[in-house]
Design a protein around this nucleic acid. Structure first.
Length: 646
DNA sequence: CGGCCGTACTG
DNA sequence: CAGTACG
DNA sequence: GCCG
């Protein structure tokens, strides 16, 4: 019984939620009116990992008794609200996402004070009429509305408010900062006002009392960020790096290393399969504070940190330079820089010199010395030199055209083309493929991300059209949408069909394609499946738009696959790409091969031709994502936790 | 020194 | 086949 | 460009 404080039962959140709903179902929970949380699905993130505070229990109860549904695990696809008293970084980490900015826009994020606020505003209901029989008439009642959750005093994360305001604004130009300069800290409104709330304990307002547990890197970086503007090092504040270092550095230092080493075939406590065959498993064991598993895919990565943002900006430039050049070596250099960037983003403490950078997995001698150059001189001469040539800018511009990669772009540059207008005019005699024509025509639209809501809206128009063709089709929206992202670069739809009645979805793609064009949802095709007519497995790529005036073109991919492959297909089509690579990499090291059709054992490859398979192998798993995770020894991760890239 | 994911569509 | 794209 |  939660009320018996004397008994002092320690409740975990899950237990308490279960208990609450049991009571509610049994009619034992008092249900005060009005039920103004009806329709809300809340993920409440209490402070501390295990034992609930009294205040949290009280709030849980209040939420449930007023009609809210509580999520045991965060699910962005159904959540309407997140309540968190934690800082942005801790919250992001515990939601399994990179940043609170990845929380879909429609989900309101509020702090714990919101409950008291709502109760005080609406506690007895506003405009609720009491009927003669004593019951209440809620017909014209005034419920807490959007504005209540937008109240800055109740907003959990000011950065989300900022983000919503910023949406129409174009991305800011990259500002060069010299060494030693800090970013302008934008005037941040106070994160929270110390409201006089009925049940607020001021001790818990700000500091996530880092409870007796080992500090995690994200926790410590959270504290750093809160001591000044979000995500930035304190200007001259009393939180010197050394203090942080003393407490989180030794662990933090090698988290990304551990994760990355993992990716490359070191070990995992639970599995402990000797993938490397090197025999000295102990070396890894000496790391006592590592997360339970060290494979990259096994642990949701901690929050991105902006501590080393200036360094990352420089590495991004190096990445851009090399990805602009159509040579294989450059492609791999770009690959390396991307890896560096990922790992440095995960590095929870400020890098002070090249030596420190060199300790980070993925940062080699060359990059470390470049970082050192940047930290001492404020610039990297190599970057200045390379960028002065002008090819990088042109290639970047041209590769923005769908269907134009670094080779084509670089050729055009060599031919003297510099602008999109040059391309349009066919300068230098360049000819565009049909798909590139479309890419050029809708250059701006294609390079723009769409709000999550629009992706959903388009999907909800497509789904019934598909189901009209065959009501038994399974039609899902995948990609960044399924990962719960607030905005989507494209719409990914996976279609398949159960086989248990002996029928198939053969020919559906052709009919759907026609139907979607007729409905004016599909506007242009980029790549048609080779055989839409009767294949069970095909890919469509194209553009679509909401069939209303002035709507933008959006990229859409439709993938069809046999039912048996559904799990592997979900896995593939959900991504993200880095997560997929890591899974495939791990599969490879374990002697499997993973693709969108399944996990295969015994695949033999031609040692000369990398992609060529001498032996197809036997399918081991493919019907569900879970079995694939299980066989690969990867702890289950929800789609929105599968984020490895930026 | 070789590997760095594995596949589908275009022309 | 090379080039580009997808997650 | 980094790693084994």
């Amino acid at each position: 019984m939660p009320k018996d404080r004397k008994v002092a039962k320690k409740w975990t959140a899950d237990e308490y939620i279960d208990d609450l709903f049991q009571k509610k179902d049994a009619g034992k929970l008092p249900m005060p009116n009005p039920p103004f949380f009806l329709g809300m699905e809340v993920f409440y993130l209490p402070i501390g990992q295990d034992v609930l505070r009294d205040i949290d229990m009280k709030r849980y109860e209040r939420l449930v008794s007023r009609g809210a549904v509580l999520q045991r695990r965060y699910d962005p696809t159904t959540a309407t609200h997140i309540v968190s008293e934690n800082g942005a970084k801790v919250t992001a980490t515990r939601l399994g996402i990179n940043s609170v900015l990845d929380i879909p826009e429609h989900i309101r994020t509020v702090n714990g004070a919101f409950l008291g606020h709502l109760v005080s505003c609406y506690g007895s209901g506003t405009h609720v009429r009491t009927l003669p029989n004593g019951r209440k008439d809620y017909e014209n009642a005034h419920w807490p509305g959007r504005e209540d959750f937008d109240d800055p005093k109740l907003a959990a994360f000011t950065e989300r408010i900022k983000k919503i305001e910023e949406i129409p604004v174009a991305p800011p130009p990259q500002v060069r900062r010299r060494h030693g300069e800090r970013r302008l800290s934008s005037p941040q409104p106070p994160a929270r006002s110390d409201t006089e709330d009925e049940d607020e304990d001021p001790r818990f307002k700000r500091n996530p009392t880092k409870s007796r547990q080992l500090p995690t890197p994200s926790q410590s970086s959270d504290i750093i960020s809160r001591s000044s503007s979000p995500g930035l090092p304190p200007t001259s504040s009393p939180t010197p790096y050394d203090d942080e270092k003393a407490d989180s550095d030794p662990l933090a230092e090698f988290y990304s290393k551990a994760r990355e080493e993992a990716e490359l075939g070191l070990n995992d406590e639970s599995e402990f399969v000797d993938y490397t065959n090197h025999g000295h498993k102990r070396g890894v064991r000496t790391i006592t504070h590592t997360p339970p598993s060290v494979w990259s895919v096994d642990n949701p990565r901690p929050t991105a940190s902006c501590l080393n943002q200036d360094i990352i900006d420089e590495l991004e430039r190096l990445h851009l330079i090399h990805s602009s050049r159509p040579f294989e070596e450059d492609a791999w250099r770009a690959f390396s820089y991307k890896k560096c960037i990922r790992n440095i983003k995960n590095h929870p403490i400020r890098i002070k010199n090249g030596n420190e950078a060199r300790q980070i997995y993925g940062v080699g001698e060359k990059t470390a010395s470049k970082i050192n150059e940047f930290l001492t001189t404020g610039k990297i001469s190599r970057i200045t030199h390379e960028l002065s040539k002008g090819d990088v800018a042109a290639v970047k511009l041209f590769t923005g055209i769908y269907g134009v990669g670094s080779h084509t772009a670089y050729n055009w540059y060599t031919l003297g083309l510099r602008t999109l207008e040059d391309v349009r005019r066919g300068k230098g005699g360049v000819k565009l493929s049909p798909c590139q024509e479309t890419g050029l025509k809708f250059y701006d639209d294609i390079n723009l991300r769409m709000p999550r809501a629009e992706a959903e809206e388009i999907f909800l128009m497509i789904k019934p059209i598909a189901l009209a063709i065959d009501p038994k089709l399974s039609v899902d929206i995948m990609g960044s949408f399924r990962r719960g992202k607030a905005d989507c670069g494209d719409i990914d739809i996976l279609i398949t069909r159960p086989i248990h009645d002996g029928k198939t979805h053969a020919g559906v793609m052709a009919r759907l394609w026609a139907g979607l064009h007729k409905a004016r949802i599909l506007t242009e095709d980029l790549a048609l499946p080779s055989n839409m007519e009767d294949s069970l497995e095909c890919t469509y790529r194209g553009l679509c738009s909401l069939p209303v005036p002035d709507s933008r073109r959006r990229r859409i991919d439709i993938l069809m696959l046999p039912w048996q492959y559904r799990g592997a297909a979900l896995l593939y089509y959900t991504g993200d790409d880095i997560f997929n690579r890591a899974m495939r990499f791990k599969a490879g090291k374990m002697g499997y091969s993973l693709n969108q059709r399944g996990l295969y054992a015994g695949v033999v490859r031609n040692p000369n031709k990398r992609t060529e398979k001498t032996n197809q192998g036997n399918i081991v798993a493919s019907e569900t994502e879970e079995e694939i995770f299980k066989i690969l020894g990867v702890p289950w991760q929800e789609p929105w936790q599968r984020v490895r890239g930026a």
